[in-house]
Design a protein around this nucleic acid. Structure first.
Lengths: 220, 220
DNA sequence: CCGCCATTCGAACGCGTGTTTATTGACGCT
DNA sequence: AGCGTCAATAAACACGCGTTCGAATGGCGG
């Protein structure tokens, strides 16, 4: 289970990919997520994957391209889940979903990935790392991320037409801050702070908590 | 003004520091804040400071120690401001300050640093970078940061004795997420998103907005 | 059975890095 | 005046890095 292939990960491209490429992809994502891009060498990756050193450059061109390709794929997957949930919420509410449902579409996908039973936990950790390191080409994709976020901004504007748009943008900004950096090393700190009173693992409870907090901030 | 010394920066240690050490300190903080720790070489720093290459190792021991020393000092300064404001709020309210004043003590200091007219703007940018890069020794200081945060957690618990402590810890966690990663590259994105409708520079207005949002999340 | 092509492999290259060393200069104290 | 300490300088060192190269490998169609 640990290093086996990720079924369907390359299913979008018709040609069958070399097993080596998958091994490199998975090993790199794992190591990048755990130790950061700059702290992981190509030699570390190929050693973890059990392949030859030159494999990274052969299959991905360069170490930077490898990072970029992982980031592009995971971002796309996350955005798709979010967009799908927002779309469903729109259908469900005659084109004008309430604030809480919009926020749910924003929060639920990454929180589902965060679940320890989920294979994608490491992918989310990778995404957060990649976002804060930013290789110039990463920021470019982060720019297209804006057009993705615009859908949520528009939905919120429609849900609260009484608020000045400026106010809505700022609140969305705050809400994004709640998710992006938050997790992981910060989560450990929370455990120390509360002397282990927080019951982790109950992702649904956490989602409810976040929604309560964010929705309250959006009310008034 | 750009590269002049920082008066009183070493005033806590009685001996007068070499001017070179200050030059290195300031240049390093600036470059680290702008480009990140790993992307700035010792040669970059010494070139920016206009000093000899060996100065970093002579005055600070190593590049890592230099980063750590900058981080330690700035963290201490920020924490002191926050603790002072919390203390004043406690005195002002007979030992039990309301939620909004506690949150103000948490938000106001970094927001004041963020003001473009403030020299410390670069210091805050440095702190955020250093927090997300984390050189193992940094995380150790981040651990003592916990004991600092505990004061705010206790104040919030006293202000909302009706809430289960677990709930208070989580909400504090969310509030911290609003400040830590948020600024900077994210602020640019906000400008794109709102088509430049957000009036930056009005730090007080931003503080009020953040307080409204966070306080609402804490109510209920 | 042969030749082709993608893949794998070991080895090396060139470069930038943080750090160290040896030497020189300046300044204060006895 | 001379000594000793601290600071600054130029030069070099050792090492790890991403990348490249040429040869070896192996499966597959003709």
């Amino acid at each position: 289970m640990s290093l086996t292939d990720d079924p369907g990960a390359e299913s979008q491209t018709p040609e069958a990919e070399a097993a080596t490429k998958q091994l490199v992809f998975n090993a790199a994502e794992r190591l990048f997520a755990l130790h950061g891009f700059q702290n992981v060498s190509v030699r570390d990756i190929t050693a973890e994957a059990g392949v030859n050193l030159a494999s990274v450059n052969y299959h991905f061109g360069s170490k930077d391209s490898l990072l970029f390709e992982i980031f592009r794929r995971r971002t796309q997957e996350l955005n798709r889940e979010r967009a799908r949930m927002l779309h469903e919420a729109t259908d469900r509410n005659a084109g004008k979903p309430p604030v809480r449902e919009i926020l749910t579409a924003l929060f639920a996908p990454p929180l589902r990935w965060l679940d320890p039973s989920n294979d994608r936990r490491i992918s989310l950790q990778f995404l957060i790392r990649a976002r804060s390191e930013g290789t110039a080409e990463i920021r470019e994709v982060l720019g297209s991320d804006v057009s993705h976020l615009k859908r949520f901004a528009d939905a919120l504007l429609a849900a609260r037409p009484d608020l000045p748009p400026e106010e809505v943008y700022w609140r969305l900004h705050f809400v994004l801050g709640m998710i992006h950096q938050n997790r992981f090393m910060e989560l450990d700190r929370l455990h120390v702070l509360s002397s282990g009173q927080t019951r982790e693992g109950e992702v649904d409870a956490l989602l409810a908590r976040m929604l309560d907090f964010a929705e309250a901030g959006f009310s008034r």
